[in-house]
């Protein structure tokens, strides 16, 4: 372990990334509900108000449209607001400001103004929560031009990507896999934010030769477990972590599928019109002659997110991913 390497949880890695951004740029400020003394309901902003003050780590009124709308105004004045939406299901009061204002303002002004607002959203399920606390609305935002939509899957990426998101001149939806907040990993905390940008680059997490599993955020770990299980059966599965839904790094996925000839996409969001549908369409278009099987998707159903007691039947489990892998090989 090098001097600059620390073992951090995903939540702590984001906290460290936020801290660095706050230190680096006086214009960065955090806004959200309960992010101050409490440190956020997931403690991601723990200790930051104490160190940076109430003016830079701001407990806002309980009004999501108000948070986003005033963040836009602050960005127009030269600030870089990082807004926390307490849970995925509560982003909708702000949906109007995000899609009709935040996403369009740079274009509306002919490039004259920038609105570098970051929206942090703990998302995804598997935590046994009540309604509105387990959703995956990323496709709704990726469908809107003008927004960048990303999701880290590891502490290292969480640390690096949050800083890159804050430095981005574009608005960024930063979807944090809340079910993975407490997973630990090594994080190189030196010099992050200065190297090559990873924010919109997919990466091959595990190389393989026979099938490509495409995932992001919370499902990357599931995909890795599936790849390990498949290996027992003599199947070599490559895992690609998209990192970004918008822009979609098609090139990395296509290069992988051209080699493997099979592709399965895994996300928690419903498969119907989800980001996996976009991956499938693009892979089909660009890898048609390399494909041994149709691109398959594993994800949530076209239902309301179910109650906690049965949510594990809804989420793309290891078994459902392996089932899709089997089906892909059966063609």
């Amino acid at each position: 372990m090098s001097e600059s390497t620390k073992t951090l949880t995903v939540a702590r890695a984001i906290n460290e990334g936020l801290r660095r951004s706050l230190e680096r740029d006086q214009k960065v400020l955090l806004m959200g509900e309960d992010i101050g003394a409490l440190g956020g309901v997931f403690r991601v902003t723990d200790g930051l108000q104490k160190d940076f003050g109430e003016d830079r780590v701001v407990d806002t009124p309980l009004a999501e449209s108000g948070i986003l709308g005033t963040a836009i105004g602050l960005a127009l004045r030269g600030y870089r607001p990082v807004c926390e939406i307490q849970f995925d299901g509560f982003i909708f009061p702000a949906y109007d400001q995000i899609t009709t204002q935040l996403a369009k303002m740079h274009a509306r002004s002919g490039g004259r103004v920038q609105v570098p607002v970051v929206i942090r959203v703990p998302f995804g399920g598997g935590i046994g929560a009540v309604e509105h606390h387990s959703e995956s609305p990323e496709a709704l935002f990726a469908h809107t031009a003008g927004l960048r939509v990303v999701s880290p899957s590891t502490p290292q990426d969480a640390f690096t990507m949050i800083q890159e998101a804050i430095a981005s001149p574009d608005p960024v939806l930063f979807f944090e896999p809340k079910g993975r907040y407490w997973e630990k990993g090594e994080v190189d905390v030196a010099g992050a934010g200065e190297g090559a940008r990873v924010l919109d680059r997919a990466r091959v997490v595990r190389p393989g030769t026979d099938l490509t599993l495409v995932a992001y955020g919370p499902t990357v770990a599931t995909a890795l477990r599936a790849a390990a299980a498949a290996e027992q059966e003599g199947r070599s599965v490559e895992v690609v972590d998209l990192r970004a839904i918008s822009p979609l790094d098609t090139a990395t996925v296509v290069a992988s599928v051209r080699r493997t000839g099979r592709c399965v996409v895994v996300h928690e969001a419903p498969t119907f019109l989800g980001s996996g549908a976009e991956v499938a369409a693009r892979v089909t278009e660009e890898c048609f002659y390399s494909l041994e099987a149709p691109v398959l998707r594993v994800g949530g159903f076209h239902t309301q997110y179910p109650v906690a007691k049965i949510e594990h039947e809804y989420l793309p489990s290891l078994d459902r991913v392996l089932d899709a892998v089997d089906r892909a090989f059966a063609y």
């Binding site: 449209s65 709308g69 005033t70 105004g73 602050l74 127009l76 004045r77």
Partner: peptide, 13 residues
């Protein structure tokens, strides 16, 4: 919508 932007801008001022 812009009434919020004005308010945020004023907070920046």
């Amino acid at each position: 919508s812009h009434v919020l932007h004005a308010t945020g801008y004023a907070m920046g001022v």
